[in-house]
Design a protein around this nucleic acid. Sequence first.
DNA 1: ATTGGACACCGATCTTTACCTCCACGAGGG
DNA 2: CCCTCGTGGAGGTAAAGATCGGTGTCCAAT
Lengths: 253, 253
Amino acid sequence: MTLLDPVPETARSVGGAYDDVAEDIELRTPSGSGSNRERGADRGRSTARGRRLPRHARRMQLLGAARDVFVAQGYHAAAMDDIAERAGVSKPVLYQHFPGKLELYLALLDQHTQELVGRVEEALASSHDNLRRIERSVGAYFDFVDDEGGAYLLVFESDLRSEPEVRRRVEQSLQACVDAITRTIAADTGVNEDEAELLSVGLCGLAEVGARWWLGSGGTVSKERAVELLVSLAWRGIAGSPRRSVPDSGFAR
Amino acid sequence: MTLLDPVPETARSVGGAYDDVAEDIELRTPSGSGSNRERGADRGRSTARGRRLPRHARRMQLLGAARDVFVAQGYHAAAMDDIAERAGVSKPVLYQHFPGKLELYLALLDQHTQELVGRVEEALASSHDNLRRIERSVGAYFDFVDDEGGAYLLVFESDLRSEPEVRRRVEQSLQACVDAITRTIAADTGVNEDEAELLSVGLCGLAEVGARWWLGSGGTVSKERAVELLVSLAWRGIAGSPRRSVPDSGFAR
DNA sequence: ATTGGACACCGATCTTTACCTCCACGAGGG
DNA sequence: CCCTCGTGGAGGTAAAGATCGGTGTCCAAT
């Protein structure tokens, strides 16, 4: 039950630093425990598994492996054995870097919520034109979702929302996006603070669900066109959508 | 770790039928296993637990208890013991009605996805005026989320999306809402099928995330006002939102 | 160059938790 | 009055999170 691509690991796995150190690791055959253990003989050839890594490099590599496994299987279905195996290390190593499964997950979650919020804030800061800002913000959601690794699943579809710390982080990431939009976009609408915030929430919801749906719809619509359509909806509304000529009377108000 | 309201059970728990049969059940003390077991003595007084119920009634009652526990704790944290205890029966009874935990969860999930889809379809069929339809559809999401019992969590925040059957049902419920809106609302916009669908997705996302956010925001905005604002966004767009008078020039395009 | 020490790693195991069934007991029909 | 069916508590089992003693390797100082 691998369920994962062979082992990307060549690509920048998580942070970008120290990543090149951990190439050419190799997964052992999953069932090869106890039967064909190499003893003495080709020990010292290091089986490509016993590569010693500096602490930080190992940590980064573990985070990458954990991301792959958590994304592919979800928190609960992912076993620490799977992550260790994916990383090409044994379980104790994992526990030398993270106190437990939850902490590992939280570290990962923090990474990716920050990435989303960062993208949105960047999009909002990239222009003074509000339509442009909307376009770029929705685009940020799409890019986030479309990013290699599928880490968006950790933020948008995390199981483990029963865990308060996870829930807090997920909700906080939405709230951060909402606040950013509220501050920069809705500042000049005539509604009060709470109501401007609600509009921003609507926008985030539109972007999030739209992006996820687009990703799962298998490329029948290009990303650019999808963003354009959603932005059109957000900007001009349904009433402003282009109507096809309706011969049989105005029924659409 | 009860984490649940004492035992609602008086309110219509799931289907409405047979529910009055199963009142006055009582939760046993959670840690009272093995210590203070009543033996022989007051047996026969039936402890209010041994109430025999017709099969269908029992099933409904079990579903109600399962809903409470799954909503309060999530799928993984919920134990079958908890559900049985909540329902005031023993575990074998549970397994006589459902083959396993998963099937129980799926039955519950089906109930509530159908409820959401039904509400939306009803909203769309309740008028011929498209603005009204939007209003009622967004309202349907809010009502669904605001409904007693918090069953929306099963649909919108289910852990266990790693289970294919669960994922399928959740995605299908969104898709059903999208299709319904696509058919009735977006039929007269000039975009093609796929693109109209994407607009509907945006609308669903706006409604879903908006409703969930509103629910968690603690009533700073009334439900009606929240719906009104989101509908305003969906119908007229951001550009159509009421502007406050901006003396310092048109910066907002 | 050698050697000592510290660090990193591994196989194997322990334990807990929670899903899912087996032996005794009490209420409704012939 | 007797039989059957449903109920109750105790247990088996399997998986997965967390850990221990032993081993190999890298670095630096003499």
